[in-house]
Design a protein around this nucleic acid. Structure first.
Lengths: 195, 195
DNA sequence: CGGCTCTTTGACCCGACTCAACGCTCGTGG
DNA sequence: CCACGAGCGTTGAGTCGGGTCAAAGAGCCG
């Protein structure tokens, strides 16, 4: 949605939002091309911070522009709205993963999601994506301790589901990975009914 | 946002969405007046079910009407959009509560939120609101077992923070309750910048 | 080489879950 | 009018997933 205007493309293009209340919780991960914080257009309170995981290229859209768009281009407006709705769908999915999945399943679920999202924007090479995120940050995303993140990743590796060395994440067994994470991709679908 | 057209007003007006994956996770609670599932207008996949906790009065808005609104009334469109954005803000808040708060704190947080939301639509009598929800349902909301919900509630009662008998929930010590739940109400604010 | 950040490992602990039973209340039917 | 379920709340005992604390590798950069 947001085009890059200057600067270099991010190594992988991954952003995150944080909410700090003592410990921090990452409430969203963004990949290249995502429209970031679009909700701030209408929501006056900024309830989180944003933090870049890597060098990024950013394009800013002034609120005045959005105002103009919503006044004059209904279709485009609906597309922007849809964008925020998909964020919401992802949030709901995270919520259920958080509440009802084991640490391992939750991790598998997140990996499935990130892989598909990166693939969707052409950031996958075969079964491999660059995921420049630390285990501590994964913990902050999943609501787990760093130590446990490490153990969970080892388990997924030992099971032959993924390889994850350095920033390179490789899916070794998509079938079983989705099963472990109880993952279905429907909520990510950007397809809309041409509204 | 949605006006009632016929039928009786709900005893308390509380709805919930469920997502079932083996166990179920309630991803939203709605109070009287909430616009329900507005996101289904643009999001083609319905990723959850809806379930009424009590008898409710429902007003349906056809998608065709929404289409017309978005084509002709930019301001109203932004208000509808804002509505879905607030749902998103609540989701983010739940996410951090889920990931980073203890069971007791999480419960206190939820109680604070529901109390304020019910109060905002005139459903509070003094410090008391009607909350026709079972402990099992609370568990499905918070990601806790029914048994633990019970123990957590007892703890809040013993601490003199709330009274909760039958459906009547009374806030006994708002100050301490918000502290326990690390609750701040900003994310609920419906106020917008007149866009 | 030293220092930084990140990953990994081990030992121990505790919050929350499970299983199982019991009690209370209310609605329904004999 | 009582008996019986059904649903919900409550309690106890035992277990376990994940957290905490602490320290040791492993890259990486200046």
């Amino acid at each position: 949605m947001s085009a890059a205007k200057n600067g270099v493309w991010p190594r992988t293009g991954l952003l995150l939002k944080i909410v700090s209340n003592g410990r921090r919780q990452i409430s969203a991960l963004h990949v290249a091309g995502d429209f970031l914080d679009l909700h701030s257009f209408l929501l006056k309170t900024m309830d989180h911070g944003v933090l870049a995981l890597t060098t990024c290229r950013i394009a800013a859209v002034p609120h005045a522009t959005l105002e103009k768009i919503t006044n004059e281009y209904p279709h485009l407006t609906r597309m922007l709205w849809l964008n925020t709705l998909i964020d919401g769908a992802i949030h709901r999915e995270w919520l259920t993963a958080m509440g009802r999945l084991s640490a391992t399943a939750h991790m598998a679920h997140l990996i499935c999601e990130l892989y598909l999202r990166l693939k969707a924007v052409g950031r996958a090479e075969g079964e491999t994506v660059q995921l420049p995120i630390t285990q501590a940050e994964l913990g902050d995303t999943l609501g787990l301790s760093t130590v446990h993140v490490n153990r969970v990743l080892q388990e997924l590796r030992k099971e032959g589901l993924i390889r994850f060395q350095g920033d390179a994440l490789t899916i070794l067994d998509w079938e079983r990975l989705t099963k472990v994470g109880e993952f279905t991709s429907t909520y990510l679908s950007l397809q809309n009914e041409d509204r």
